[in-house]
């Protein structure tokens, strides 16, 4: 799986949305992405990419797009 596929998959699984919706998603856009859901997303991303994120990055990951920027800090290229 490519990085982009892994990344999108995390959103799809955690929030039970399709790929198209995932790509436009922002925090609190849907009820599944609340603070609890956010924890689940982070856990899924950390596991998928075998990284441990900084707390500031965890808090800043407020949308699908923003998340890609943040993950590039951890050497993940899309």
């Amino acid at each position: 799986m490519s990085n982009l596929e892994k990344y999108t998959n995390a959103f799809v699984t955690c929030f039970e949305v399709d790929e198209e919706t995932a790509k436009r998603l922002k925090y609190q856009d849907i009820s599944a992405w609340d603070s609890v859901g956010h924890m689940g997303l982070i856990a899924a991303l950390e596991e998928a990419f075998d990284i441990m994120m900084e707390t500031d990055d965890i808090i800043d990951l407020s949308s699908f797009e923003k998340g890609k920027e943040i993950l590039s800090k951890y050497g993940i290229e899309f």
Binding site: S35, H38, M39, E46, M52, T55, I58, I59
Partner: peptide, 16 residues
């Protein structure tokens, strides 16, 4: 494990 003891939820709630 260190990674499980990060206060992510607390920090998140405070940030909000």
């Amino acid at each position: 494990e260190k990674r499980n003891n990060r206060p992510i939820m607390i920090a998140f709630i405070l940030a909000i």
